[in-house]
Computed example of a mutant assay.
Amino acid sequence: MEFALNEEQQLFQRQTQQIIKSKGDLEIPRAYSEGKEEVLDDLWTGLAELGYMGITVSESYGGLGMGPLTLVPILEEMGRAVIPGPYIETVSFAAPLLEKYGSTEQKEKYLTELATGERKFSLALLEGNGEYAPSNINVRATEKGNEYVLSGEKILVAHADFVDTLIVPVRTGMSEQDISLLLVDRDSTTLQLEKQISMDETRKMVKVTFNDVAVPKSQLLGQENAGWELLEIGVRGLNAALCSNMVGGMERIVETATEYANTRVQFGQPIGRFQAVKHKIVEMKMNLETGRSLSYYAGWALENNTEDVVEAIAMARSLITEAFIKSANDNVQIHGGMGFTWEFDCHFFLKRAKTLENYLGSPEDYREEIVNALVSDKESVAVGR
């Protein structure tokens, strides 16, 4: 099994490096955090011109028709610069779901606009108690003629004020599993948006309130009451993408920590000569390479729909999430008091790592998912015998 990047993927990696560097590299998240949101518009336009928005969109809708593995080097480079915005939610979540479950009309409208960068997506999933479970979906969609009328609220919706369409899980029946997915366009509905405080200023969080919002039934993605299964499938792609993104952040942390350890002098010698600092950097490097291997395999399993795709992605998500947090925290410690200052870049990575810690589930949740998948596999083998 070959996990090295092929020539085409290496080309995407170099192009991504070039455009991010031309737009300012780590000055992008810094400017965005300071309220200069135009830097995200500028970057989005640049990526769209290169065709990056349509990577996972089929050629018939103006995309490149490539799979999750092609996204790996692109997402790693974005992670290296802590790039803001809903790129992952749009390209790794919305596009594959629309390709697989969208109606012909939905594909023609949304995939075509997505591929050109005209339409951005986010997932409006979380509600009240913060649990990622069908029982926690309480935004109700009541049928009224040819429409659904939505009432309730979603919290911590990433970049809801920047995107054009929200994919919203709603309750459409009495059973716990009676969840459906709706495509809610901001330009044709009136939504109440309220910005929420986020530890990571590069991931703007918004509370979205639905006050009897009418959505045409034609906006139903997939079958009614089958939305949770679709959501789980979509989240696999989202998690695989997040793993690649975090690996990119870990790689930048290793480089930053190593460079600082070789140049910062204390007691007459670089601090990198001290055993405590050496050990931290070595552990960072080991976690990086382990995480990268798991990330590549998760992407490969997703693209090839292998039997172990669920546990492959869950393993990567659990380990990489925790390793990213530890590496980011150790990097701050290596930089000492300077690591806590706004002028240094260490805090961007720590904030991103902590923000993603419980996004779509905690590391413990993913370990539980691994156990459930392994037990299910074992039961399937037993039945087969």
Results as ranks from 00 to 15, higher is better:
Val157Asn: 03
Ala158Gln: 04
Ala158Arg: 11
His159Ile: 04
Ala160Asn: 06
Asp161Phe: 13
Asp161Val: 10
Asp164Met: 00
Thr165Pro: 01
Leu166Ile: 00
Val168Tyr: 01
Pro169Asp: 04
Pro169Ile: 07
Pro169Trp: 02
Arg171Asp: 05
Arg171Gly: 03
Arg171Glu: 00
Met174Arg: 08
Met174Pro: 01
Met174Cys: 02
Glu176Asn: 12
Gln177Asn: 13
Asp178His: 11
Ile179Val: 10
Ser180Tyr: 00
Ser180Leu: 03
Ser180Cys: 07
Leu181Tyr: 01
Leu182Lys: 02
Val184Met: 07
Asp185Ala: 12
Ser188Ile: 12
Ser188Asp: 10
Thr189Lys: 04
Thr190Met: 05
Thr190Arg: 12
Gln192Met: 09
Lys195Cys: 03
Lys195Leu: 13
Lys195Thr: 12
Gln196Glu: 15
Ile197Thr: 13
Met199Glu: 12
Thr202Arg: 12
Arg203Tyr: 07
Lys204Arg: 15
Met205His: 05
Val206His: 11
Lys207Cys: 00
Val208His: 09
Thr209Val: 14
Phe210Tyr: 15
Asn211Ala: 15
Ala214Gly: 02
Ala214Met: 07
Ala214His: 08
Val215Ile: 13
Pro216Gly: 15
Gln219Lys: 09
Leu220Ser: 09
Leu221Asn: 06
Leu221Cys: 11
Ala226Asn: 09
Gly227Lys: 01
Gly227Val: 00
Trp228Phe: 08
Glu229Leu: 07
Leu230Ile: 13
Leu230Asn: 14
Ile233His: 04
Val235Phe: 05
Arg236Gln: 14
Gly237Asp: 04
Leu238Ala: 03
Leu238Glu: 05
Leu238Ser: 01
Asn239Leu: 11
Ala240Asp: 08
Ala240Pro: 05
Ala241Asn: 08
Cys243Glu: 09
